[in-house]
Structures are given as C-alpha cells and as structure tokens.
Design a protein around this nucleic acid. Structure first.
Lengths: 132, 132
DNA sequence: TATATGTGCAACCGCTGAGTTGCGAAAGGC
DNA sequence: GCCTTTCGCAACTCAGCGGTTGCACATATA
C-alpha cells in the first residue's frame, strides 16, 4: 500500500522507471516525432501497450500529442526533466554542505588542539544534523 | 509482464520511482548517515519497510551500509546518479541534433529556391530519421 | 546473568501497473 | 460506394512491489 503522494515530480520519476518507456523516449528524441503504431513496430509489444506508455509520458509532461488526420503524432518535451534533474543535483549539494560542516569541525578541532586543557565533544556536528 | 531488462541504469531509475525512497535519500543526504530504525521514525511505515527501501538503494549503488556494533549505518552515494543524469541530458542532445537537421534542411531549401526548376521533396529529412 | 535494543530473514497480503484481446469509430485510398 | 488503416476505449490477466507480522540472532546495558 504505497502512501498517497502529492510530489509534483513523482509522475516524472515513475515515467522514467520503465525501460520500454525510456526506449520510447529515446526513439522520440532521435526522430522528430512518431505515431504509436510506428513506435510499436520497434518493440515486441502491442500498439496499445505503447499507447499506454505514451499516455504516462504525457501525464508527466514529457510528451505531447497532436492529431493530424487519422494519425496522432507524438513528440518529446524534455523540458519536463528539469525539476527531476534539479532534485538529483540537490542531493549532491547536501553532500557539499556536509563537507563544509566537516571542514568547520576540523578547523575547530585544530583550534582546540592549539588550546591545551580543552576537549571538544566527539561527533557533535554529525548528531546535530541527523534528523533535519 | 515487463520484458527482462539488462539496462545497467534501470535499478537507479526504479529506485528513484518511489516517493518514500526519495525522502529517505533526502534524509540521508541531509544527515551524514543514519540507521534504518532512525529513518523509520520519520515515516509512517515500519522499520522493515525502510530496510527494504535501503536495500533497493544499495542494489542501485545509491547507498552503502557499514555495520558498527549492533547498528548499521547507511550513507548515500550520489555518484551513482551520474549515468542517469547523463542519459536524461542525452535526450536534449537529440533535440539539438534535430535542430541541426532542421537548419541543414532549411539551408538546402534556400539553395533550391535559388535554383529555378528544382523542387525539393517534402519532409524528406523527417521521414529519414523516423526509425533509427 | 538477565534484559533491552537493533538487526535480518521469511512468509504473507493487497494493490498497482504492464501487457493482452476485442471491438467500434473515424479518416484515407480504391 | 467499399475496404483498409489507424486510433481509442474497455475488460481482463498476472507478476511484482510496498507493506506488514512474526521470530531468531547479535550486541549493548543493568
């Protein structure tokens, strides 16, 4: 029972989680656009399966469709990947913060070592940020 | 029946697809490391659920564990996100390729227009790259 | 030693999602 | 006109996943 989520970039990550869907994205990126039947020829699955995948991509804002006559052209809109990539980059930024914390900690240790008789508490910085 | 995948960055995207798992990643990023029980206190799920999430992250190379005494510390390894982010960036690169194609196409059109009596075939470039 | 705490493993359950088949409707080609 | 193509919708199957409970083992603390 996965908890209900209102994270706006959840549909993007969910869309990216399926390998067939990622291949569809690559085909759409390589070509200027394609129909569901054209895409289905490249996979060992039915057209309806591809159509469902395209709908998932559309719900995530990663693709748009435009009907022309009896066929609907699908096109990739990779701009929707921006927030997801930003979120991933933010994890490394957190790492940078910890590096800065460590550097300040070491600096304080160095200063304390220069002051005989003072003993710094161990791993104070680590436990302080354990549950933000 | 999802087709079997040997895509090496598949476990990474699968790991990112769950919102609880992403929250765990953020907590691990904000702190220098935590145990499964500590993390479970921040979520309305059991410790075992968090432990499973941590195992998924480990299988994707996104986290490592180190046992110390009776508790095991978990730490995030965001470097494993690199290939995934590179793949996403590659989709935009494909877009750049299409822009280059379009520019070449327009340039050819302009040259043809300067040569009376020659008629360029319509949308030749588009159909050429439709199924790479 | 006894007790409490933290972990890992295994079995079990409900639901979601990927995929299928079937069919009817709209658009093109003859 | 008729036939073909392409599409969208609905119902269905089924494996995997998120989550739980229960328990046994190891480590710290009294």
């Amino acid at each position: 029972m996965p908890l209900p989520t209102l994270d706006p970039l959840d549909p993007v990550f969910v869309a990216l989680a399926d390998p067939t869907r990622r291949s569809v994205m690559q085909l759409l990126s390589g070509s200027g656009g394609a129909t569901a039947t054209q895409l289905a020829e490249q996979f060992p699955v039915t057209r309806q399966a591809i159509a469902k995948h395209l709908q998932v991509l559309a719900d995530a804002g990663l693709a748009v469709s435009a009907r022309a006559g009896r066929e609907t052209q699908w096109r990739l809109t990779p701009a929707a990947l921006g927030p997801a990539m930003a979120w991933m980059g933010g994890l490394d930024a957190g790492f940078d913060d910890r590096v800065a914390d460590l550097q300040r900690h070491l600096e304080r240790q160095r200063a304390a070592r220069a002051t005989p008789g003072f003993r710094a508490p161990l791993s104070a910085a680590a436990s302080k940020r354990r549950h933000p």
